[in-house]
């Protein structure tokens, strides 16, 4: 194939809501020229077995992500604050419904 490399079709991230009441969840990505085609492609690629009641597609280029290199400074501070979890607290024997 000697054809010049074609321009990439934009990449879209696909999110599915699997049942009413649940969050949309990221499942993967598709290439498509526009939003309508992205929905159609996402339907064919990711919902062949009733995996969804709703699809979101988001242009991948618009997603802003945290940098893996910042992982420690972003998330470590939460690790020391174990008092944010209910299991940190001791409930005296004999106390119910708390």
């Amino acid at each position: 194939m000697s054809a010049p490399p074609r321009e990439q079709w934009p990449l879209w991230e696909v999110f599915l809501r699997s049942r009413n009441g649940l969050h949309h969840q990221h499942v993967g990505s598709v290439h498509a020229v526009d939003a309508e085609m992205a929905i159609e492609n996402a339907r064919d690629v990711y919902t062949r077995r009733g995996e969804a009641v709703s699809i979101w597609v988001v242009p991948s280029a618009t997603i802003v992500a945290s940098d893996p290199a910042d992982k420690d400074e972003l998330f470590d501070p939460a690790l020391s604050k174990i008092y944010r979890h209910p299991t940190f607290y001791e409930v005296p024997d004999g106390v119910a419904n708390i």
């Binding site: 990449l11 991230e13 990505s29 991948s60 280029a61 997603i63 992500a65 940098d67 893996p68 290199a69």
Partner: peptide, 12 residues
């Protein structure tokens, strides 16, 4: 997203 931003910061 995944296919971009591969120019990761490199420490050390």
């Amino acid at each position: 997203m995944y296919s971009q931003a591969l120019d990761e910061r490199e420490d050390g």
